Amino acid sequence: YYLLGKKTSSFYIVAQLQMLMPLLMKTARAYADALSAFKEGQPIGDGIGALVAAKLIHGRPFKRLVKDTIVAEVEIDGRRAYVVKAEGPGAKVGKPGEAVRKLLEELSDEVKAVIFVDATVKLEGEETGEVVDGIGVAIGGPGVEKFKVEEVSLKKEVPFYSILIKEDVEEAISPMKKELVRSADKAVEHIRSLLAEVTEEGDTVIIVGVGNTMGIGQ
């Protein structure tokens, strides 16, 4: 905007830069905070899904399922749950789509539901850390991992559910706020409520914690 405005001597082009500057500065500060977080190995907002999965796995044995992705078998309210997350505490996102596809193929028709836990973008007036329920595959990015899951879901006819934690784009790449840390426990309760609603005791489910697991172990 500045160079084009200077070249054309157009006040209106420069005025656009002035109007956008607060948003640009907000984004720039977020990236500066992100550099600090990655340097120190601190959890970031995008890792909230991985944090929820880590809370479910904590203290239980796990194994590597696919590249940079682990799975642990956990009992939750009488249900056998396979909890999937990226292998921490390094800055990895893993391959959740490939992991879920492999589990669905191995477990055949045993799986009654797949639950994804991930961050979602909030509106400006919404509160950080609000937990909401949804339907479908909650995996961000270009869509490759999501396609892997959706492809096999059509064959297996397994319903997909989502537990989403709201945050803005800047919070996703900045050190994790206390509101997000607290929301992890709320997300676990949402998972329990959802399991009670859509499954029965003895059923098998898959729970996927999506996101960058930097600073978050197993």
Rank of each mutant, 00 (worst) to 15 (best):
L123C: 15
G143W: 05
A15S: 10
L35V: 14
E151H: 05
Y1V: 10
I139F: 07
E105C: 07
A72L: 08
L65T: 02
S108M: 13
Q16I: 02
V205S: 10
A99I: 04
R80T: 15
E130V: 10
K177F: 05
V14Q: 06
I139W: 09
V111S: 06
R101F: 01
L195R: 03
P61S: 10
G217N: 15
A113H: 00
E105L: 11
T213I: 08
V149I: 15
K39V: 04
K92P: 07
L180C: 07
R182T: 10
L104F: 02
V71R: 02
K177W: 12
E201I: 12
P22C: 03
L65R: 08
V149R: 03
R79W: 12
P22G: 02
A184S: 09
E98H: 09
V74R: 10
L51D: 12
S36K: 06
M176G: 04
P175L: 03
L35S: 14
P61G: 06
G97F: 01
G90H: 10
D118A: 04
V144K: 00
L3I: 06
K7T: 12
R60K: 15
G97E: 02
I191V: 14
S9I: 14
V114L: 08
L107E: 13
Y12P: 02
K67D: 07
I13V: 15
V205P: 14
K95P: 11
V188P: 08
V205A: 12
K178E: 13
G59C: 01
G5M: 02
G47M: 00
P142G: 03
K186Y: 04
A187K: 07
V131D: 03
V144G: 12
V84Q: 00
V188F: 13
F38S: 07
I173C: 04
A113R: 00
K26A: 09
T8F: 13
L17R: 09
G78P: 09
P142V: 14
L107I: 14
K6P: 01
S9A: 08
L103H: 10
I57R: 00
L17V: 05
